[in-house]
């Protein structure tokens, strides 16, 4: 399985979609947005909020991109080829999940490092650790949604669905523009999205409070939904492979 993870990571870092959506675009958007000061509060706290938003945005990009990879692999007959090697199906799925989880790290790190180095964001070590941990673990529901799409749909369609889900959740969840500026009805929707709950946990930590029970509960709810979806899609794909 180690060899499989190594191969998949090699493919990930050579993937333009990963570099653009997962790393370059969140870093660039962070630099632009933090200097426009769209976020509420003074410039310093605004910069922190935007940093968390963009790290979350990048992490989602990676998680969904990983799911699209499965769709591509299915279309290419790669999953069938893997079934013809001694590698077991559980190892393949586990390897893909590990690859996705590892792939998220550079994206989070790139935005947070830009925050420290360029915008001189200062947080306590405990806050940094919590934010990295929450942003990292919180991608699991999105990774599952992405994988579900990858298994349920074929190549091109899976990518499209994932990009749509990624951008839609990023925007509606208030990762690009804070939900304060949203009309009331949209803000009501935003507060139930997984992406908003995901970022809210880290926004709270950055502001010096606990992640918030409501956000954790909503995200866990979505985790269950997307987990079931991914399981269903995986089983269905297994029957037709």
């Amino acid at each position: 399985m180690f060899g499989y993870i190594r191969l998949e990571l090699l493919r990930t870092i050579r993937d333009g979609g990963y570099v653009i959506f997962g790393i370059a675009s969140p870093v660039v958007m962070y630099l632009v947005l933090s200097n426009l000061a769209l976020a509420p509060g003074d410039e310093r706290s605004g910069s922190i909020v935007t940093m968390v938003s963009m790290a979350a945005y990048g992490a989602l990009g990676c998680a969904f991109n990983n799911g699209s990879g499965i769709g591509e692999d299915r279309s290419a007959g790669w999953l069938r080829q893997l079934r013809l090697t001694p590698l077991g199906p559980v190892q393949v799925v586990a390897g893909k999940i590990v690859t996705g989880a590892v792939g998220v790290v550079p994206s989070i790190a790139a935005v947070l490092l830009t925050g420290v180095l360029v915008n001189h964001v200062e947080l306590s070590p405990g806050q940094w650790l919590s934010i990295v941990g929450l942003l990292w673990a919180g991608t699991i529901p999105f990774a599952l949604l992405g994988l579900g799409n990858g298994y349920a749909l074929t190549g091109q369609t899976a990518s499209m669905a994932n990009i749509a889900a990624f951008l839609g959740l990023s925007i509606v969840g208030g990762l690009w523009v804070p939900t304060m500026g949203f009309p009331g009805w949209l803000r009501a929707i935003a507060e139930w999205t997984p992406s908003n709950s995901y970022a809210t946990m880290s926004w709270h930590v950055a502001a010096g409070t606990a992640p918030g029970a409501r956000a954790v509960a909503i995200l866990c709810g979505w985790l269950a939904v997307f987990g079931l979806y991914a399981l269903y899609a995986y089983r269905r794909a297994g029957r037709t492979a």
């Binding site: 090699l10 493919r11 050579r14 290419a76 007959g77 790669w78 069938r80 080829q81 013809l84």
Partner: peptide, 11 residues
């Protein structure tokens, strides 16, 4: 060796 497929890009 199946009839088709089994090759992945970027490796």
């Amino acid at each position: 060796m199946p009839q088709e497929g089994g090759l992945i890009p970027r490796v």
